[in-house]
């Protein structure tokens, strides 16, 4: 458990330094959140593996967000789920083969 958190934090910190427009005052999980959910606007353009990776990141992020104080947890859990569910929706839409409509 601890290991996972550490890895996530490490990746988050890495990402944080790599992002040019990152706000310095923001905690790493927030930057990771912004990164992960920035894809919602172009979800249809993402490949299935990209979507899967993003969903994975959402799931890891969820664990961190669940540790936050009540207000932040309420807001960001909702935002995270909206974004994760959309990725899942688009992934489903893409992975189901386009069958001819019945009737």
């Amino acid at each position: 458990m601890k290991n996972v958190t550490v890895t996530i934090l490490a990746t988050a910190v890495l990402l944080f330094t790599a992002v040019p427009y990152g706000n310095c005052a923001e905690p790493p999980w927030r930057t990771e959140f912004d990164e992960t959910c920035a894809g919602t606007s172009e979800a249809m353009a993402l490949s299935q593996s990209e979507l899967q990776a993003l969903i994975g990141r959402c799931e890891r992020l969820q664990k961190i967000i669940e540790q936050l104080d009540e207000s932040a947890r309420k807001v960001f859990l909702k935002r995270l789920l909206m974004c994760k569910n959309l990725y899942q929706y688009v992934l489903d839409a893409k992975s189901k083969p386009p069958e001819p409509l019945a009737q």
Partner: peptide
């Protein structure tokens, strides 16, 4: 509205119809 407000909360169907 943005996609995530409608999908999948309001519209779950993954194919039109």
């Amino acid at each position: 509205n943005g996609c995530e407000l409608c999908h999948p909360d309001i519209f779950v169907g993954i194919k039109k119809g």
